[in-house]
C-alpha cells in the first residue's frame, strides 16, 4: 500500500477536524478526496505529510510511519499545498534549483519527470514567481513538488481558483504523471473532477461518507432521478418542495433534480399538480445521477 490511514482523528480546540478516518491508496493509484471547504482535507494532508500529529490513529506513507519515520517520508513525497508556498522573490529557475538542492538532487537529474510541465514555463524562467499568472504558478509549484522524484504526490486543491482551460490541462498532466508510476492523492471541492480519479473518498465535516470508484459510488444512488423544468424556476422549486410525495428537490443548473418518495412515481400526477400552480412548459425526464447527487443524498 502506498498510503494507509487507520482511525485517524484530530481536533482543534472545540472543532473536530477529522473523525476516525480510514482508507488505503494503492501504488500508482490516482485517489481523490472530494469535499467542500472545512471538510478536513487539508488537516488530513498535513497529518500524512508529517506536518501535524494526529490525536488518535496511525498512518503510513510509502510504508513509512508518519510519526516514527517522518524524515523518510519527507524524502519520499511531494506536497503541493493549497496556498501558493514558493518563494515569490526568487525567479522560476531559482525556486526549482532551490528545491532540487534541498533534496540533494539537480534539475538535470530528474528533468525527464518535469519536462512536459516545465517547458510551458521555461520561457519565463527569469521571472519572479510572484509575478506569474495563476496557471503558471500552479505549474511551477507542481514542478517543485516533483523535482526529487517522489513516490507519492500530495496535491491539496490544485485547481481551486483556476479557470476551466487550466483545470483541464492540469488533470491531463496528472494522468501522465500517474503513468510514470507516481501515486497521487489529490483533494478538490469540484464534484465534476471526481470522475477523473481511479477511486474517491467523499468527505464532509471530518467524516468519510463513502469510498469507491466514481462509477460504483454513482450506482449507490437509491432513487430514480428526474430532470424537471418549467417557465419559472423560483415557483417550480417552491411548488416541488410543497409536493407531498417529494423526497428531494435540488436546483441543478437549468433543471431541478427531483426524487419521489414512492417507487411507482406518477409523472402525469406531478405535471397536473404543477399546472394547477400555474406553471407552464413543464418537462419531466429521467436522468442519470452524478457524484454530486450521491454526495447530497449521503450528507442529507
Amino acid at each position: 500500500m502506498s498510503i494507509s490511514v487507520q482511525h485517524i482523528s484530530k481536533s482543534f480546540d472545540k472543532v473536530t477536524a477529522l473523525k476516525d478516518i480510514s482508507f488505503k491508496v494503492k501504488e500508482g493509484e490516482l485517489f481523490g478526496l472530494i469535499g467542500p471547504d472545512g471538510a478536513g482535507k487539508t488537516t488530513l494532508f498535513r497529518v500524512l505529510t508529517t506536518l501535524l500529529f494526529a490525536d488518535e490513529g496511525t498512518a503510513t506513507v510509502a510504508d513509512f510511519d508518519v510519526v516514527e519515520d517522518y524524515k523518510s517520508i519527507r524524502n519520499s513525497v511531494g506536497y503541493m499545498p493549497g496556498k501558493f508556498s514558493l518563494y515569490q522573490d526568487l525567479t522560476v529557475e531559482e525556486n526549482l534549483t532551490f528545491f532540487a538542492t534541498i533534496f540533494g538532487t539537480t534539475i538535470e537529474e530528474n528533468y525527464d519527470l518535469i519536462k512536459e510541465i516545465y517547458v510551458q514555463i521555461e520561457p519565463f524562467k527569469d521571472r519572479r514567481a510572484g509575478d506569474l499568472s495563476g496557471g503558471m504558478k500552479q505549474k511551477l509549484a507542481l514542478s517543485c513538488a516533483l523535482i526529487h522524484k517522489p513516490k507519492v504526490l500530495f496535491l491539496d486543491e490544485p485547481t481551486t481558483g483556476v479557470d476551466p482551460v487550466s483545470r483541464k490541462e492540469f488533470w491531463e498532466m496528472l494522468k501522465r504523471l500517474q503513468k510514470k508510476g507516481i501515486t497521487i492523492l489529490v483533494s478538490t471541492p469540484y464534484m465534476d473532477e471526481a470522475a477523473l480519479c481511479d477511486r474517491i473518498a467523499l468527505i464532509q465535516d471530518g467524516e468519510i461518507l463513502e469510498i469507491d470508484t466514481p462509477n460504483d459510488i454513482i450506482k449507490t444512488f437509491p432513487k430514480k432521478l428526474y430532470n424537471i423544468s418549467a417557465n419559472n424556476m423560483y415557483q417550480l422549486i417552491k411548488n416541488l418542495n410543497a409536493y407531498k410525495h417529494q423526497y428531494s428537490v435540488y436546483p441543478f443548473g437549468e433543471f431541478v433534480h427531483y426524487t419521489d418518495q414512492r417507487n411507482d412515481f406518477k409523472k402525469e400526477e406531478l405535471i397536473n399538480y404543477l399546472k394547477e400552480n400555474n406553471l407552464k412548459n413543464i418537462t419531466i425526464t429521467e436522468t442519470a445521477p452524478t457524484i454530486e447527487d450521491v454526495f447530497m443524498e449521503l450528507a442529507k
Binding site: P36, T160, P189, Y250, F252, F295, K300
Partner: peptide
C-alpha cells in the same frame, strides 16, 4: 465556490 453542495443549492 467551496461550499458544500446542499448549502450551495
Amino acid at each position: 465556490g467551496g461550499v458544500d453542495p446542499i448549502t450551495r443549492r
